[in-house]
């Protein structure tokens, strides 16, 4: 809808200061898009993909060709310029899609789940690239199911559930306002007894999910001391994170 591909039922949209969908063409000149599903052109090589995409923005061949080395370097694909798309790994394809979205040097970048399905190395490489772009003054709008990604990359985030805005704010501020500072996850034989006898005494708030007890607290030491007296219980102590906020606000039911 922001790209002007779908018309809104009501309201108005401005993208990079341009009314959409009325002037969608002009607006899209300022925006790069990384879609969720790779749609690189399999009939072209890596370099040709960038050249072809530049033409769609009305760039001259010389203008795109001048940008190609820089884009390939950014994507870590300098040695793959003449490779076919089918020869690239999943991470390389994502990076090329990102480079392709930058071919016309947009001010704004839309990314739809940019690291879904990638291994940790490939994911970190994408994150580094995105940080460089943020550093260079680009605005990035990112959708993700991956809370760690949102927490690392965003200044401002919104949680949407079934199309409704649930909350919005800076990641740290959201965590602080919705969740106690630490979480102790407890699981093991006889958990129910421990929960009944001790949990309400030592946890600020607790939640039982399947075989696990999530104990939220500002004083983890106290919980852990209590757990040491119950050797059958195993536990994991960690700081609270955005995923806890997300699950608290949207519930634990499956979303499909």
């Amino acid at each position: 809808m922001l790209l002007g591909l779908i018309e809104p039922d009501a309201g108005s949209i401005e993208l990079a200061g341009i009314a959409v969908p009325q002037h969608a063409r002009e607006a899209r000149m300022k925006v790069g898009v990384v879609p969720q599903m790779d749609n690189l052109d399999p009939d072209f090589s890596v370099r040709e993909n960038l050249l072809a995409y530049g033409r769609y923005f009305g760039m001259s061949k010389a203008a795109v060709a001048a940008r190609v080395p820089e884009l390939l370097e950014f994507a870590g694909l300098a040695s793959k310029a003449d490779a076919q798309i089918a020869q690239l790994s999943g991470g390389m394809k994502r990076r090329l899609t990102l480079a392709r979205a930058l071919v016309h040097d947009p001010d704004l970048l839309f990314l739809d789940e940019p690291t879904t399905g990638l291994d940790p190395q490939a994911r970190h490489l994408i994150w580094q690239g995105l940080r460089r772009l943020i550093g260079a003054g680009k605005t990035i709008v990112l959708t993700t199911h991956f809370m760690e990604e949102a927490e690392r990359l965003t200044d401002r985030l919104a949680i949407l559930d079934h199309g409704r805005l649930v909350t919005e704010g800076a990641p740290r501020a959201l965590i602080e306002s919705h969740i106690e500072p630490a979480v102790v996850e407890v699981y093991g034989e006889g958990l129910e007894d421990w929960m009944r006898d001790r949990a309400s005494g030592v946890c600020q708030r607790f939640e039982s999910v399947g075989e696990t007890l999530f104990c939220y607290t500002g004083n983890a030491e106290r919980v852990i001391d209590a757990l040491k007296q119950a050797p059958a219980q195993r536990y994991l102590h960690r700081p609270s994170n955005l995923e806890d906020v997300f699950l608290k606000l949207t519930g634990r039911d499956l979303r499909d």
Binding site: A24, R25, E26, R28, P35, N39, D43, Y53, Y56, R100
Partner: peptide, 14 residues
Amino acid sequence: VQRTWDAIMNAPLT
């Protein structure tokens, strides 16, 4: 199959 049209329509083409 290739979703090439989708990619093109993210550029200023209709």
